[in-house]
């Protein structure tokens, strides 16, 4: 299987894993381990300084093994997203940022105007920019023209688990793109992940599909395998679909009746 290249970094795994809402740190650690994910997303938040003894998942990880992808979730404007990104970078742990600027509380769909503005500002600041966007084909192209390092169209609303609602748009985005396309948000089950990869996506970013599964550790492995299967299938090149049957066995040398 070919490698995933984002900016100046190269990855074996095509699964980017979110770190939110796991039942426990123990389950989360094991899910992360079996997923083989190399890129983990995080959110940037105020610390509970009045109870500093609270455990923090990031501090339990061997950070030499992972690339951190902090998001700008919580930002509603480009300026807020830039502030969040700069805070994340000041940790000295990362220079990648997932631009995520929500424009609608009910659907959690991104605000396209602020998303574009934020991406432009962050590129000017020297960040490696991965932008969460809707499946808008033209917006994806505009982001690419800005120079983002990956476009991350959603499959369906964040956390909805509805899978790929508009495969045609995703296919258009993948076809036109010269930067990695990472299907982000809405993945519900392994079949969605396979589908995304078979469409030609470079990677899949998911969180709730694993953290919310009955057995997150098993699901982490299922997703890993699904993404590998989908990618291999894409690289192998599938057969054309036909309306009628084509026999697999030879028609010559049929036994006399």
């Amino acid at each position: 299987m070919s490698m995933l290249k984002i900016g100046d970094k190269t990855f074996q795994s095509r699964l980017l894993l979110g770190t939110g809402k796991y039942p426990s740190f123990e389950i989360q650690k094991e899910a992360v381990r079996v997923s083989d994910a190399e890129i983990l997303t995080f959110a940037v938040r105020r610390m509970n300084v009045f109870e500093p003894s609270q455990p923090n998942f990031l501090e339990m990880l061997d950070l030499s093994k992972y690339t951190l992808l902090p998001n700008t979730a919580g930002a509603t404007t480009a300026e807020e997203a830039v502030r969040t990104a700069k805070l994340a970078k000041a940790s000295g742990l990362c220079d990648m940022i997932k631009v995520e600027i929500i424009g609608c509380d009910r659907t959690l769909l991104p605000d396209p105007v602020e998303t574009l503005r934020a991406s432009e500002k962050l590129l000017a600041e020297g960040f490696t920019v991965l932008t969460y966007t809707s499946d808008d084909v033209v917006l994806a192209r505009r982001l690419e023209e800005l120079g983002v390092h990956a476009v991350m169209p959603g499959a369906s609303p964040i956390g909805s688990g509805r899978g790929i609602l508009n495969p045609l748009n995703l296919k258009f985005i993948i076809e036109q793109s010269s930067v990695p396309v990472i299907i982000d948000a809405g993945i519900g089950s392994p079949k969605d992940a396979v589908y995304a990869m078979e469409l030609g996506a470079d990677a899949v970013l998911l969180n709730t599909a694993v953290s919310g599964a009955k057995d997150p550790i098993k699901m982490a492995e299922a997703m890993k395998l699904a993404i590998e299967a989908g990618r291999l299938g894409f690289e192998a090149g599938r057969i054309e679909e036909r309306d009628y049957a084509v026999a697999s066995s030879p028609l010559e040398g049929l036994l006399p009746s």
Binding site: G20, K21, T41, A43, L68, N71, L87, I158, A185
Partner: peptide
């Protein structure tokens, strides 16, 4: 003064 850290997120 703000003290900020990383928490779980997608």
């Amino acid at each position: 003064v703000e003290m900020i850290h990383f928490v779980g997120g997608g």
